[in-house]
């Protein structure tokens, strides 16, 4: 459903991503792993339009999106989360999520000033979507709390809800469990599974190997910006190059 060919990104003299071919498998949980500095986040940023690739093409649903800006890509149904959450702390959880559905609405300044029928309808639609997403990630009970008063793990869930509110078909998750304790990590894994069960295509970057091995259907390994392996968790665990890349450490749990 999303295909990448010869994707390369150079920053000055450094090559962050080097001629990567990859395709995200529809309806599956796809994972990208690799040592620190392997270019995983850059790879994400290229696909979601945060950075422009130096070379290569990105095709989503038979449509080339290579140099499209991030907001256009989002409208096509590609959502993402960031490593840090960037929420407005002094506002309620629900208020933070409502804007997530903005991209599916058409109201403009005129509608806002004159409170047209379209605006009222679309606002209701955004609120309903926010409630639905919060319910899905299990946060209905805190939807009226200020973000500053909820836990780190809950903030991560809010970020998920925001991504879901955009009505995506594919969701990119950048280290969804960074800074979250082990128990909560399991719960996050369950949530990711739940998203996948709902029919969403997932692509995530993670460091926590046990979780990835349990969750992912398909894994790609990046090292120094290059793809060194790709396959099922079982194949990846046996792959010698991967083991070498992780400096002799075991990949399995």
């Amino acid at each position: 459903m999303l295909e990448v060919k010869g994707l390369t990104k150079r920053f000055g003299g450094n090559v962050a991503v080097k001629s990567v071919d990859y395709s995200v498998q529809q309806g599956k949980i796809n994972a990208i792993i690799g040592p620190n500095g392997a270019g995983k986040s850059t790879f994400f940023n290229l696909i979601t339009g945060v950075h422009e690739p130096t070379e290569g093409t990105i095709i989503y649903k038979n449509q080339e999106i290579t140099r499209q800006p991030a907001n256009v890509i989002a409208k096509l149904g590609v959502a993402r989360t960031f490593q840090s959450t960037h929420l407005f702390e002094m506002s309620t959880v629900k208020d933070n999520v409502i804007v997530g559905h903005r991209l599916r609405t058409k109201s403009n300044l005129f509608d806002s000033i004159f409170r047209t029928k379209r605006l009222k309808e679309e606002e209701q639609q955004c609120i309903a979507k926010a409630e639905e997403s919060l319910d899905f990630v299990g946060l209905s009970h805190v939807s009226d709390q200020l973000v500053t008063n909820i836990s780190q793990e809950e903030k991560k869930r809010v970020a998920f809800a925001l991504a879901l509110a955009t009505d995506p078909e594919i969701v990119f998750l950048d280290e969804p469990t960074a800074g979250v304790n082990p128990d909560e990590t399991d719960e996050m894994a369950n949530l990711i599974q739940k998203m996948s069960d709902k029919g969403l295509t997932i692509c995530l970057i993670e460091h926590k190997m046990p979780m990835i091995m349990r969750l992912a259907h398909h894994i790609m390994v990046l090292n120094y910006g290059e793809k060194i392996a790709e396959g099922t968790p079982a194949e990846i665990q046996k792959n010698e190059e991967v083991i070498k890349a992780y400096l002799g450490g075991t990949v399995s749990a």
Binding site: A74, T105, S112
Partner: peptide, 20 residues
């Protein structure tokens, strides 16, 4: 309104707003 919410989203994080 949605316009105001859009402004606030930009203030919080432009990268996040773009991704939305």
């Amino acid at each position: 309104s949605l316009t105001g919410r859009t402004f606030v989203a930009i203030r919080n994080s432009e990268d996040l707003a773009l991704s939305l």
